[in-house]
Design a protein around this nucleic acid. Structure first.
Lengths: 152, 152
DNA sequence: TGAAATAGGACTAAACTAGTCCTCTAAATT
DNA sequence: AATTTAGAGGACTAGTTTAGTCCTATTTCA
């Protein structure tokens, strides 16, 4: 239903914690305790996030994870992509398969534009926005402007 | 993966056909033939679209379906909602359940803003945009601006 | 060397999706 | 009135995906 997976939701929670306690190395167990997300799940998520470079892992005793960039340099799009793969609303926006019908492809060409806009929108919101900007005095601002995209 | 369902994709194809042949009543069989989507699937989709008022149904012999408004008055958001239900990236943006942790809820409060922005974005693109605006001379324009939303 | 961590991947149950099919109801035609 | 055409509504199924767990290997510290 145009829904993010639960795991991505968890990932933002867990990265939010890391953002609020930056410059420290956090073991998976610690993050699990702090966020009350089950340890195996936290582990899995951190591994995914590490693989795509959102967090850095330090192996061995006293190891753990830390954010690989400051929270305002990590976008929501980065997080989603780390957990769910490429952001694309429609199938053929990723895999450029043969479209049986030109009429359909017209439609899908335009879907591609919408996809692009979505991605841009999600790229414009940072982990810092998610993790910190919750004071009533500082509402999250959000602006996207995607114009005159030619389809390709 | 933040993906629309195949069915929604089909729905846009089939509504695109209807948009391009407006002012006519189309039986499900006809639409199925024209779009090369299997009849039972087309039926199912049209029923869903009828239920939420995107198309109007005419029962009985010589019956069929037609768009209930002009293509530029039907938004992509309408179509998605008809097929997939409410547009909300995160779970608790719909069902306002109890959040175990205030830290988590901060994050989720901000998700709500992003959801809103997404919805606004999808509301700003019409079926007409999808179905017609594919000429290289007329690229699909797309502009969203969501600012200073205070969280609810 | 032993303990503490992550890496990587296998595995499972539950949920969802896509797609089909069946019966019922409504309207038009004859 | 009977017949035919077409939608309404919902049940059902196979296949896929998601969420979550667990196991084994590897790395690092002490």
């Amino acid at each position: 239903m145009l829904r993010l997976s639960k795991l991505t939701d968890y990932a933002t929670v867990l990265l939010g914690y890391m953002a609020r306690h930056r410059a420290e190395i956090h073991a998976a167990v610690e993050i699990a305790r702090a966020t009350r997300i089950a340890l195996p799940t936290v582990s899995k998520l951190l591994k995914l996030l590490a693989r795509s470079g959102v967090v850095r892992s330090i192996r061995g005793a006293k190891g753990g994870y830390c954010l690989s960039s400051p929270p305002d340099k990590i976008s929501v799009a980065d997080i989603i992509q780390a957990i769910e793969g490429p952001i694309a609303l429609t199938e053929c926006s990723i895999s450029d398969e043969y479209c049986e019908q030109s009429a359909n492809c017209e439609i899908r060409g335009n879907w591609r534009v919408i996809n692009k806009a979505m991605r841009t929108a999600l790229e414009s919101v940072s982990l810092a926005d998610l993790a910190f900007a919750t004071k009533p005095s500082a509402p999250l601002e959000f602006k996207v402007s995607v114009e005159s995209l030619s389809r390709g």
